[in-house]
């Protein structure tokens, strides 16, 4: 008999590992990727590959040469960041911009805080917002989904439904008139519209959501709290005046709501630890998103909303505690 092992209890473990969780997220993102490739063709492939490769490379380089620690790229978190970053940009974005975005996402968004687990903001979003502010033109010229024949460099570009809506309402057009100019709800549902690569197809995103739930990677709380808040808030606005406010379904299907709610707000590191905290966080994201969309200057606000609420997470964790067993005396 070889030497026996002694360790403190417990002696059995669940087989979930960080790696498994991350790869489950990757699997959940595959349908989205497939639909993007279907609609945007080569561009989607090039953008995703660039983002993934550069994120992995930056993580490896930074860990190995700057922080001098054991590189941990195999845990899959950089892979997730890479794909998410790709999902958040248009598919005709020049390669060098993507590389810059990856550097910011990994270098600034993640490693500067001490790597996985310590970053207050979702790294992919840090990268995206950085790009949006630095390269507003390239970041907001979305290729029209023409199918696989879509070429990467000189794709025909057009505005997103959200952009059309914002502009239209701003110019005083009625919502029903604008609706005629943009894809129908059904088309939006399966992704036939312009937009960032990963946000177009609601059906694929929901598929991913179901997978994540089944694999117990995430719980339903964050996505549902965000979606519910947006629905209720925009629903109220819509009921007040359906001609100057788009309906809730439009808000849910366009832009990054589903992508954000399912894949980005649920990022473990940057979301609250307690269920109560999660509700605050989810409702906050929903409210801020709608505020930006309806009253702000940008047509889209999900990324900002998530980043803003990310900033509140430490505070939420500090003050919102789970209810302790035996806390209330019941004598």
């Amino acid at each position: 008999m070889s030497k026996i092992t002694i360790s403190p209890s417990p002696h059995v473990y669940e087989d979930t590992t960080v790696k498994r969780l991350m790869f489950d997220v990757v699997i959940a993102m595959l349908p989205v990727l497939a639909i993007s490739i279907y609609f945007f063709g080569m561009g989607a492939i090039i953008v995703t590959l660039t983002a993934v490769v550069s994120c992995l490379a930056f993580e490896w380089l930074i860990q190995k040469y700057m922080l001098k620690q054991e590189p941990s790229i195999t845990d899959g978190s950089a892979l997730v960041t890479g794909i998410l970053l790709a999902f958040n940009v248009p598919t005709n974005l020049p390669i060098w911009i993507i590389i810059v975005g990856s550097l910011v996402a990994i270098g600034v968004g993640k490693m500067s805080f001490g790597g996985l687990g310590n970053n207050p903001f979702n790294p992919a979003l840090v990268g995206r917002v950085f790009l949006l502010i630095s390269f507003p033109v390239q970041m907001t010229s979305w290729p029209v989904p023409t199918g696989f024949s879509n070429s990467y460099t000189d794709a025909v570009t057009g505005a997103t439904p959200l952009g059309v809506m914002k502009e239209g309402i701003g110019a005083g057009e009625s919502v029903s008139a604008i609706m005629d100019k943009i894809p129908s709800h059904m088309e939006m549902f399966y992704g036939h519209m312009g937009g960032s690569m990963g946000e177009i197809a609601a059906v694929a995103l929901l598929l991913g959501f179901v997978y994540l739930l089944i694999r117990k990677v995430i719980t339903w709380h964050i996505p549902i709290s965000i979606i519910a808040t947006i629905t209720i808030f925009t629903g109220i606005l819509w009921m007040i005046n359906p001609e100057s406010n788009a309906d809730p379904l439009f808000h849910l299907l366009t832009g990054g709501v589903l992508l954000g709610a399912i894949f980005m707000a649920t990022d473990y590191v940057t979301s609250p630890m307690s269920v109560k905290g999660i509700w605050i966080y989810g409702v906050g994201i929903g409210l801020i998103t709608v505020l930006i969309r309806v009253f702000g200057a940008y047509p889209e606000g999900v990324s900002f909303a998530i980043l803003i609420m990310n900033a509140f997470v430490p505070l939420i964790n500090m003050y919102i505690k789970p209810k302790r067993f035996g806390e209330v005396r019941n004598d």
Binding site: K3, I4, T5, I6, S7, P8
Partner: peptide
């Protein structure tokens, strides 16, 4: 060594165990 310890790497925890 007659056995091998596999747990949090601090002496106080070992000695408590």
């Amino acid at each position: 060594k007659v056995n091998s310890y596999d747990g949090a790497s601090t002496c106080v925890i070992v000695s408590g165990l």
